[in-house]
Amino acid sequence: MKKYKIQPGDTLSAIALREYGTSMLFSVIAIQNHLLDPDVIHAGDELLIPYVTFRHRFAGENSTAARLAVTERYYGGDPDAQLIWEIVNGVAQKPIAKGAWLLIPDLADVGHHTVVAGETLPGLAFDWYGDEHLARMIELANHLPFQHVPAPGDILVVPKLNRRSHARGDTLAAMCRHEYGDVDDLQTRVDVVVAANNIADPDAIVSNQVVYFPS
């Protein structure tokens, strides 16, 4: 989560569009900052901006050229980066529906991790993202071969991407408590998760539904 000082002319919708790729997620910022009226913000005030993985609306037809255009826009045409966003969205060697929203992992504002004995890339992928299958994303981001076994002391780039979890019959509040711990603002965290995932009814989470957790 980062801090942002409101500039003259800012609106929550414009901030959300810039930060998240869609103005529809303005409510994430409003909820996090307990704004009673999201249309009323004041220049000079400071907002907390939760990290929500950037969204891109795939407006074209499914084609190699359209995929390359996405990669060029966000990553400068890096072929490894293209496979990264395809893997994250489950569209590697699969069609993309016109109008689909794609998650765009951040490969610029990254963290770093020093490997310790016993760690594996699938294990790290599960710890970082809630999905061991994203080990391939870590490999690609670090230009490592398929099924690479890291050695203690190796330093890995950690792509920025929201953790995900598959609902297993838990309530959304229980999932958030597991993700964030016993924090004082748990209900706010729940409300932010609802907004970030466009969940219509937080009491009606279905089994195996994928939920993303802003940080």
Score class of each variant (00 low, 15 high):
85 W>E: 05
78 D>F: 12
81 A>L: 14
93 Q>E: 14
110 V>L: 02
99 G>T: 09
105 P>H: 14
83 L>Q: 15
93 Q>Y: 09
83 L>K: 14
104 I>E: 02
82 Q>F: 11
93 Q>I: 10
109 D>M: 12
89 N>C: 02
95 P>V: 09
85 W>P: 00
92 A>W: 04
78 D>P: 12
83 L>M: 15
94 K>A: 10
111 G>L: 03
78 D>I: 15
105 P>R: 14
96 I>G: 05
102 L>W: 01
105 P>Q: 09
108 A>K: 08
108 A>W: 06
111 G>I: 01
78 D>N: 11
90 G>Y: 07
108 A>S: 09
76 G>S: 12
90 G>I: 15
87 I>G: 06
111 G>Q: 07
101 W>I: 08
86 E>W: 08
101 W>D: 06
75 Y>T: 07
75 Y>F: 04
78 D>A: 11
87 I>R: 07
90 G>F: 11
96 I>E: 09
109 D>N: 15
107 L>K: 02
78 D>Q: 13
99 G>N: 08
94 K>M: 03
111 G>F: 01
102 L>M: 08
82 Q>H: 12
77 G>W: 01
85 W>Y: 13
105 P>Y: 13
91 V>Q: 06
81 A>E: 14
85 W>H: 10
100 A>S: 13
95 P>E: 08
103 L>H: 06
90 G>S: 12
87 I>L: 12
105 P>S: 11
103 L>T: 04
96 I>W: 03
78 D>Y: 10
79 P>V: 14
